[in-house]
Design a protein around this nucleic acid. Sequence first.
DNA 1: CTGTTAGCGCATTCAG
DNA 2: CTGAATGCGCTAACAG
Lengths: 351, 351
Amino acid sequence: MTVTLADVAARARVSPATVSRVLNGNYPVAASTRERVLRAVDELDYVLNGPASSLAAATSDLVGILVNDIADPFFGIMAGAAQSAIGEGASGRAGGEKLAVVCNTGGSPERELTYLTLLQRQRAAAVILTGGSLEDEEHMAAVAAKLTKLADAGTRVVLCGRPPVPGDASVAALTFDNRSGARRLTEHLLSLGHRRIGYAAGPADRTTTRHRLEGHREAMAAAGLADGQETLTVHGAYDRGAGYDATLELLRREPSLTAIVAANDTVALGACAALRDRGLSIPGDVSVAGFDDLPFSVDAVPALTTVRLPLHEAGARAGRLAMATEEAPPGGVTTIPAELMVRDSTAPPRS
Amino acid sequence: MTVTLADVAARARVSPATVSRVLNGNYPVAASTRERVLRAVDELDYVLNGPASSLAAATSDLVGILVNDIADPFFGIMAGAAQSAIGEGASGRAGGEKLAVVCNTGGSPERELTYLTLLQRQRAAAVILTGGSLEDEEHMAAVAAKLTKLADAGTRVVLCGRPPVPGDASVAALTFDNRSGARRLTEHLLSLGHRRIGYAAGPADRTTTRHRLEGHREAMAAAGLADGQETLTVHGAYDRGAGYDATLELLRREPSLTAIVAANDTVALGACAALRDRGLSIPGDVSVAGFDDLPFSVDAVPALTTVRLPLHEAGARAGRLAMATEEAPPGGVTTIPAELMVRDSTAPPRS
DNA sequence: CTGTTAGCGCATTCAG
DNA sequence: CTGAATGCGCTAACAG
């Protein structure tokens, strides 16, 4: 029924071991023999049995990439870049073929752990976790424990856009400098003359949210505007609707607002929509700023002032770390800088 | 070193077979024994060996979802919905846990085939192919052959947003009604009074591109405007830059254009950017329409007239078909309707 | 360079 | 309801 390696061996009049060797290509085999085997493989339309192979070799070619929201280009760009880097790592010849695969947690801690367990079951060659983490004591400990276990079992673990696991240098981490990016963005607004700045934050319990918010508040505090920050902050999801709602709420709390900083570009778009619906012009009445510099941000009307994160580069690098094509720095942590992009959605407040 | 089922069995003072039975939960086991086993699993921190399990059972819990561009929300939305549907299919109890996983082909036919082969190696439980297919005779035949082989080997194959494989009813297909959606969109423009309509098409060799273009031309032909369509069509990628470039080219070829129909919403955004850069107003000087109705389209300025595809619903359904939670209709093909969304980016041409 | 020999860890028969 | 035995298909020594 199903054709096995032994069948190919018989057809090619060689031993199963030899067939295995030509298929994996990591062993010297005479060219003529290889020819014969390859032909038999072709004639029999043989497909290697992955599970059997993984079992015998005690390794697998699966590489898991975990993302919080696969419908969000923020993750899509990183995941795509990582997947490409991994695919190219196979460097021409088959056998090195890794199966790079993305898993969507939807931001759910349970699903994150479930995927990690599933990947652990599969003895994944590597795991890449992208994006911010949930800041729940228990969950973070559970994830850290699992990552350590994975790393101990030989799967390479890479964090991309996520804070490092404290005290585990076996886990390479690429972390975005969200805090200082956010600080510079708010400094830009302050230098323009804004004083009453609303903040449409992401979910309260995420590292990315906290770091960006902290950067914002640092800048505000440095300008002597530490007071009343709670009132000027509204939390919500990282999506368009949350930006819309947060903006209406901020306007209600502080009608004299002259600027709104959003948790990311998508939220900023929602903020813009809300302002327009309120009849306010951007940046005439209210300035708006985002974060990430996703591809659509430059096409927004007005073009969005934001903070650029090199998502593609980060993802590619994570892929290379996962393939061990690139070495992690000592300590394992690399901080990736963020760049302020000033465009048309921010301007001095109406005097 | 690595703890196995046998270790758990020893610890729980039962046979390996019993441990296997409680882990898979598809066999009667005394409650007290189960307790004991579960405790041992916990104490030993045992993790099932996926490959070994798959080998012995000749099945796997991997479900592959192939997408053309993971950074494009069009695919992200479908993939996310499918993944959710599959995750929920596990209905509470572990053991039914499927590992739903998305694979990014980047639109490359080689990578598509490679992923299919890799999934075949893994004896994947199901495979979902999303989005349009490359219209290359040879490649289509190769994919069809592989899909048939996969289906024969017991993996469920589902197409989502892709034309059915001719003559293979074992492959369930959910196909979008791109043609009639496109026709209605162009009819809308015609009814507004437009006559010189440019078309910023997708890549020339993709089914989605062709179907949408055909719908457009049907409408044009029905209005007696069949001539000169070649001149009024420019092909490019499904991205922002292509829309930008195509628009400039269309304007060069036909400066009196009053409307531009784009291959999808992202392309439409690029078109809008190009028009603005040319100093043309939307829809005052030129109307613009997209396709898909991605989330950002309603926030574009002006809000984009487009054709809505129920991506989330389609993805969820594909997931259920893959889980066999839902039955495919006889023949296996379901056509999913498209809905015209008239918004602010289209208006009558300047008289 | 190639064949032989053992398992890899688990899911199943089949008996009890 | 539980245990003992067998083999899934392949890779990895180890010889030649």
